[in-house]
Design a binder for these strands. Structure first.
Lengths: 144, 144
DNA sequence: GGCGGTTGAGTTGTGCACAATTTAATTGTG
DNA sequence: CACAATTAAATTGTGCACAACTCAACCGCC
């Protein structure tokens, strides 16, 4: 006879809880920037390199156009990005940072430290966690 | 001058990606059971011990009534649970498993193995990941 | 040039997450 | 007992996640 799985034993639930707790720690900081967590992720990618197409953003973040299209519209309504149809390929929409969007980067510099401070783990443990999660995510993706 | 944070360095994004990847691996298995991942979590708690009040489910899963109320209504519509107003405290709603809900437990037994198979990590690494995530989540919660 | 297949973005629909509010039941305290 | 404070659940509203679909632009190939 088959044993019912136990909630507290599941790595999947541990991941789900940790991820929710991490975004909860970020939330008050991001509130001051006027961003949600997924919006912050999009801005992170753009701060690294812009413009980026919707497709490129989706590849980096693992999100599809059904999630990104309305999110980007909200960022545009906030005045942080501009959406421009690409001239070379009219299917593509390029997301450019506005001046306000670029300026927000400076204020966002302190955000990640907030998580590190709250994490209660050593730098080495955080580095190892990051590494393990990266390998786990890669393996899970190749399993789908 | 402040450096813009890098996406690929953030533990937060690693958690977010790993959690999404894990639920993506579960999705086809849970589809066969007719459950979403949060619905599966609720059933896990109930399989351990029932009935449970909405409040108790929320405490175990870190979810509030705004999430659980409609979710439980859907589980009830599927015939997996029954919601009964408690006689001792008429504010409470107790969630009972139906026969079909209890029966589903047997079919769910194989679900966690699916993640372990796809994870590409050793049992020891999985155990350590579970432990680190647990401590991380606890520390993050105490930081809010 | 024409045409089938592919690609990029957007839309629609369902469900989750969470803040804020509402309502009713309970508890604590004078 | 009365009444303020608290608690449990539900509701409302906003935003994310993802499947399924639409539509226009592009590409390959004849």
């Amino acid at each position: 006879m088959s044993e019912a799985p136990r909630l507290d034993r599941q790595v999947c639930f541990a991941l789900y809880s940790a991820s929710k707790a991490a975004t909860a720690v970020y939330r008050p900081v991001l509130d001051e920037l006027g961003l949600t967590y997924p919006q912050y992720l999009v801005m992170l990618v753009l701060w690294e390199n812009e413009p980026r197409s919707v497709r490129e953003l989706g590849t980096e973040l693992g999100l599809d156009s059904g999630t990104l299209s309305p999110l980007l519209k909200r960022l545009e309504a906030m005045g942080l990005v501009e959406r421009r149809r690409s001239a070379e390929d009219e299917r593509r929409v390029e997301i450019h940072l506005s001046d306000a969007g670029r300026a927000l980067s400076a204020r966002a510099g302190a955000v990640p430290q907030r998580l590190a401070d709250a994490a209660g783990l050593s730098a080495a443990e955080l580095a190892q966690l990051h590494d393990t999660l990266g390998r786990l995510t890669a393996a899970l993706h190749s399993a789908i």
